[in-house]
Nucleic acid binder design. Structure first.
Length: 499
RNA sequence: GCUCCGGUAGUAUAGUCCGGUCAAGUAUACUGGCCUCUCGAGCCAGUGACCCGGGUUCAAAUCCCGGCCGGAGCACCA
């Protein structure tokens, strides 16, 4: 992991505890471990989804198993898939370092689901229900069967055909799985497996009118794809129970299941519907807006994939809910970034300062990285003929007239007015002796806007040498923080990572 | 309301299955010191937690019961 970042951890404290995932249950029962990540391509994935992906990926790697990516896009109306989300998810996974060995798209597998639906009707495990939903709910809540349930198989098959042919309109018929009508949880009783949805699908157009519900498609696929271990959120506990009925009908063995708790980040929205809502309302630019918890947003902000992975492994797979703090995420990222990020001077809200009293030229040498001299230096020359620099308004406003401060790596000056100062001395020791503040400065620079976490913008100037670097990339700006820099048209744009 | 599932420092996590080595480990945050021409990193030290009440036991964070608090689900969504 460290290798991919180009840093060596070999000499660093070996005592450091790595967070290790607990072993998967009943591994010996299976020849080869097969896991899957099954996102709905109706939006970009966020940290919560990435958790499922990374956890499965880790286990696949630990056991040399197979990782399956499966797009669950079977709800054209309620959760309409987005064409651009399929690739966006693939891209996010690649970036996270998740490799998948097999890929499936459920909307391409409708004939398979139809086939199993028919089989299930034939063996009496399912029926076509034409009751109005309220009617059905009333009956099932009092543990009574609806009139459709016990119709003969031939009649059910006829109805099934009527569903497929379009004889039944949307909402008029649904296929249900027969379960225990006395099950203590009404949500389990005769759950729906297939429904009519005539809205065009972005991949399949109007080819299909009947679509499987989550539990049916997922249940069938998990078996067909040979999944041995399912890691899923607690919200799926009931679904697991529902799907077991399916497996019993087909005499299949249900995979091992682990349910983990919800993941939250303090102060950040992690709900697809809320994010979508915010975008529609114009609150956020798109799904990579820095205020969101999507992988695209974290990437844009300069978080490293390794940070996300470490974080997920640290949280683990407990069934209790976890609220992650930004402090922790940032600390992980900072530790990975600090050894590799080049240092640059950035002057937020620059103001001009004229330096008087110069009688010779001074050279300032700023290393691109304090621990890596081989990265090189940036050298500035200040003298009688070029005696103006830019400093930040923030620093200036903390200064009083007559105060002595040091221009970093250059010399010490005394402030004469809000735009002039005078040379005092050169040595750093003198600055330290009187505890003079050391501030960054720039003789010239190119404009840069940095987009902060809250969406606000800080304008400033940065050394033009940053254009010679590979972009996009994350840099550390002296006394400002880490910023990921992008090329944008002929200019550059920055996203604040953290301090 | 009903059905499940949880509760270790500010946050996250180890330990809980198979009670003692846990007067509770780690990371982060915080405080102090060192280092440093960054309000960054690094190094050293310190503060800080087993939800509550009973019970079992020589011994409970760990087992049992009750309470409190929190979460998930109860869709022709995934």
């Amino acid at each position: 992991m460290a290798k991919s970042l180009g840093i060596s951890l070999t000499k660093e404290k070996p005592k450091k505890e790595e967070h290790v995932l607990p072993p998967l249950p009943n591994v010996d029962k299976y020849e080869r471990i097969r896991v899957r990540f099954a996102p709905n391509p109706d939006f970009a994935i966020h940290l919560g989804n990435a958790r499922a992906a990374i956890l499965n990926d880790e286990y696949a790697k630990i056991y040399h198993g197979i990782f399956i990516l499966r797009f669950e896009d079977t709800s054209p109306s309620v959760k309409p898939p987005m064409l651009e989300a399929y690739d966006a998810i693939r891209e996010d996974l690649k970036w996270l370092g998740v490799n998948w060995h097999e890929e499936y798209i459920q909307s391409e597998r409708l004939p398979i689901y139809y086939d199993y639906a028919e089989k299930l009707i034939e063996i009496g495990g399912a029926y076509i229900c034409t009751c109005p939903p309220e009617e059905f709910r009333k009956l099932v809540n009092s543990c009574r069967p609806c009139p459709c349930r016990d119709l003969p198989v031939e009649k059910q098959l006829k109805r099934w055909e009527d569903m497929l042919s379009g004889f039944f309109k949307r909402g008029e018929a649904v296929m249900r799985i027969k379960t225990d009508l006395n099950h203590p949880n009404p949500a389990i009783r005769d759950w729906p497996a297939m429904r009519i949805d005539t809205k065009p699908h972005p991949l399949q157009g109007q080819k299909y009118k009947v679509w499987p519900l989550y539990n049916f498609a997922c249940g069938i696929d998990d078996h067909l794809m040979g999944i041995t271990h399912i890691l899923r959120g607690k919200e799926h506990e009931i679904n697991t129970q529902r799907q077991i009925y399916l497996y019993n009908y087909f005499k299949w063995n249900y995979p091992e299941v682990i349910h983990y708790g919800r993941l939250k980040i303090e102060g950040t929205i992690l709900s697809k519907s809320k994010m979508r809502q915010g975008i529609e309302m114009g609150l956020f630019k798109d799904w990579s807006d820095p205020r969101l918890g999507t992988i695209a947003a974290l990437r844009k902000r300069g978080f490293l994939p390794e940070t996300i992975r470490r974080l997920i492994l640290e949280v683990g797979i407990k069934p209790s809910e976890a609220t992650i703090s930004w402090d922790n995420i940032e600390a992980i990222n900072r530790k990975l970034l600090d050894p590799i990020a080049k240092r640059f001077v950035f002057i937020p809200d620059p103001v001009k300062l004229e330096i008087q009293g110069l009688t010779k030229e001074f050279k300032a040498k700023l290393p691109l990285h304090p621990d890596h001299p081989e990265f090189g230096n940036i050298i500035y020359t200040i003298g009688p003929s070029n005696n103006t620099v830019f400093i930040s308004l923030r620093d200036l406003s903390n200064m009083k007239l007559g105060m002595i401060f040091r221009l970093m790596n250059l010399f010490n000056v005394k402030l004469l007015s809000s735009s002039t100062c005078i040379y005092v001395s050169e040595s750093i020791e003198e600055a330290k002796k009187i505890n003079a503040p050391i501030i960054q400065w720039l003789p010239y620079g190119i404009e840069l806007s940095v987009i902060m976490h809250d969406g606000s913008i800080v304008n400033g100037i940065v050394d033009k040498n940053i254009l010679n670097e590979d972009l996009p990339n994350v840099f550390q700006f002296y006394r400002f923080g880490f910023v990921k820099i992008y090329k944008k048209d002929n200019k550059i744009e920055g996203y604040y990572t953290h301090d």
